[in-house]
Design a protein around this nucleic acid. Structure first.
Length: 572
RNA sequence: GGGCCUGUAGCUCAAUUGGUCAGAGCAGAGCGCUCAUAACGCUUUGGUUGGGGGUUCGAGUCCCUCCGGGCCUACCA
């Protein structure tokens, strides 16, 4: 049994995430976690809300709430949606937790003691009306290059020219519109990650098996221009982890907080500590996952994230841990994802374009979304959601191939033998052939899951379902029943066992349907089938079951058209 | 501007890293079956692998170039 630590990139707190966010980290990591648990491994699966930063403060202000209250509410909303999608986190924490405060401050202190932090005086734009410093992106004005009036302080979206906020003509706050801006001096802590460049470079080089998407981004940052640059890790904000604290090895940082990207990944550790607290366990319980001197040396740590998160996970977070000179567990494998597009464009929160997590659960069961998203997860390139494709996949894969198989077998059995596994007859060549085929496919399915090739695994799983229909067609129990009822009994017994097997194998992808099937089969036997032949004898003659209701209702053309209309967005 | 990714059948994607007629699923066509959610099975039609050039015994894969799509570019997260 292995020990596997799995973290999903933290969803930001300022709103409900869309399906693209879901499929880019949480969903595939959940499937992986479920699979690894099913294989008997010890899994710690962690996620949390990322709660600090300017957007959180603005969203709270917009909602007319204190930021702490806003974050607490949004955390609960996101936690509820996570439950709705059956995301099986061992703990869903908060980056604003006391645990994260302590850990973040601890690591910063260690970095400071190790000479890896310096104080830098910077000039930044301050908005008197907003009472805050403005990140470059939150300053708008006219582009000096092309005259576009909505240019941002970091870049003009019209002519793509990189800008400095002071370049803008008639600059204004993007938050309030105020033009009462001034440049002020402010001091910030910088993480001297340039000093760790060689160590990071060597470390990245050792990760031969990482996806190109992951390593190429890291290498670019390490080698572009002057190489890895030092990075500010503090901000002038109210909401966040205070930089000045007892034992802090620097002064004059009152009123400042750590930069959200400094504390967010630390929350992976923080959330594990929160998990221990929530379960009444002491520190050793979480430390054995994170401290290589306290048991984490045999942990395999896998991170899941969208491609936009890669630099922070390959460089700044490892730099934080390495720079502490403490034996923290570093990531072993990073699985990064491309983006999911929506019907020929991008998901857009502002335009209401695309399906968001709450809406998705309102209109269809989570298994539908899980199946489509996982079987189309953007592993190799951006992928595309269309309603037509969604409808076709759900109706064909879930309703016709899997759902109908369960239906035809259980209903046939009920009408000929009753709701009980029939006795008589014996498995023969046809059954052995199916066992052979499924064994081969199962090995492929497992290999793909081990390699975190979710799409390929889903295709293999589907083929395993389809093998049941092929078998049934070949064995034709409806014909056998007329001449040789014992033979029909053996076929149906075999098919009923296939149904149970399918429920077990499908659990990482469609946990609700899996539970429904096992419930209908009235069995608790969900051990992973290391031996397919043996698994075909788990439901024994005389075992009772019930015919389940339709597992997957089909999506009608009308329903599809309606949803297509509803989620098209305002401006497109 | 710079860097990276990407373009394969009508659609969504593969192709063991340069090696047999480029494969699946869906959609289309034909046949079969009648247990089942008008479901299932079998067979089958679709491709000058974005265009052009090059390297090689051999290119979807490597190089050059053009065209299209996307991401990143360090103060959004």
């Amino acid at each position: 049994m292995a020990r596997i630590l799995i973290t999903s990139a933290l969803p930001y707190i300022n709103g409900i995430k869309h399906l693209g966010n879901l499929v880019g980290s949480q969903l595939p990591s959940d499937t992986y976690a479920r699979y690894m648990r099913a294989r008997g491994h010890e899994v710690m699966y962690i996620c949390a809300t990322d709660e600090h930063g300017t957007p959180a403060e603005i969203a709270a202000a917009k909602a007319g709430k204190p930021v702490a209250e806003y974050c607490a509410e949004m955390h609960e909303v996101q936690a509820e949606l996570a439950r709705g999608f059956r995301l099986s986190f061992d703990f869903f924490g908060r980056s604003s937790s006391q645990r994260n405060h302590q850990l973040t401050q601890h690591l910063a202190r260690r970095l400071g003691e190790n000479g890896l932090i310096e104080i830098v005086t910077e000039k930044q734009v301050y908005s008197k009306a907003d009472g805050r410093f403005l990140p470059d992106r939150y300053i708008e004005g006219t582009c000096p290059n092309c005259g576009y009036e909505g240019a941002r302080g970091d870049q003009c979206e019209e002519c793509t020219k990189q800008l400095d906020p002071t370049d803008l003509i008639n600059p204004r706050s993007a938050i309030s519109g105020s033009t009462d801006l001034e440049v002020r001096e402010t001091k910030h802590l910088f993480l001297r990650q340039s000093r760790l460049r060689d160590r990071l470079d060597e470390w990245i080089d050792s990760k031969r098996d990482w996806p190109v998407l992951t390593t190429s981004i890291a290498k670019k940052w390490l080698h572009d221009g002057d190489g890895l640059q030092d990075r500010g890790i503090t901000r002038d904000l109210d909401w966040g982890i205070p930089v000045q604290f007892d034992g802090a090895p620097w002064e004059g940082m009152e009123g400042k907080v750590f930069y959200v990207w400094f504390d967010a990944p630390i929350e992976y550790i923080g959330a594990t500590a929160e998990w221990a607290d929530a379960n009444g366990l002491d520190d050793s319980a979480w430390e054995r996952w994170w401290r290589t001197d306290k048991g984490a040396d045999n942990v395999r740590y896998v991170q899941f994230m969208g491609k936009d998160n890669v630099p922070f996970h390959t460089l700044s977070f490892p730099a934080t841990l390495m720079g502490s000179n403490e034996p923290w567990k570093l990531v072993d494998y990073i699985k990064s994802f491309n983006y999911l597009n929506y019907d020929g464009g991008q998901f857009s929160t502002s335009k209401g374009r695309g399906v968001f997590m709450d809406q998705a659960l309102e209109i269809l069961p989570s298994d539908y979304w899980r199946w489509w998203l996982l079987s189309h997860v953007p592993e190799n390139s951006d992928s595309e959601f269309t309603w037509e494709n969604f409808q076709a996949s759900i109706n064909k894969d879930l309703a016709d191939v899997l759902g109908n198989f369960v239906s035809r077998v259980t209903k046939f059995c009920r009408s000929k033998f009753g709701e009980v596994v029939p006795e008589g007859g014996a498995y023969g060549a046809a059954e052995l052939a199916v066992i052979d085929e499924i064994s081969t496919r199962l090995a492929a399915y497992q290999a793909h899951m081990e390699a975190i090739e979710i799409r390929k695994a889903s295709a293999e799983l589907r083929a395993i379902w389809a093998a049941g229909n092929e078998y049934l067609q070949e064995a034709a129990p409806w014909a056998a029943f007329k001449t040789d009822p014992e033979r029909a009994a053996a076929i149906i017994r075999f098919a009923l066992n296939l149904i149970r097997l399918y429920a077990v194998l499908s659990e990482p992808f469609i946990p609700d349907a899996s539970a429904t099937i096992l419930g209908a089969m009235k069995t608790e036997a969900r051990d992973w089938p290391d031996d397919v032949a043996a698994a075909m004898n788990i439901l024994t003659p005389g075992h009772e079951f019930t015919v389940p209701d339709v597992l997957f209702a089909k999506i009608t053309d009308d329903a599809r058209a309606e949803m297509e209309q509803r989620f098209a967005g305002k401006d497109s």
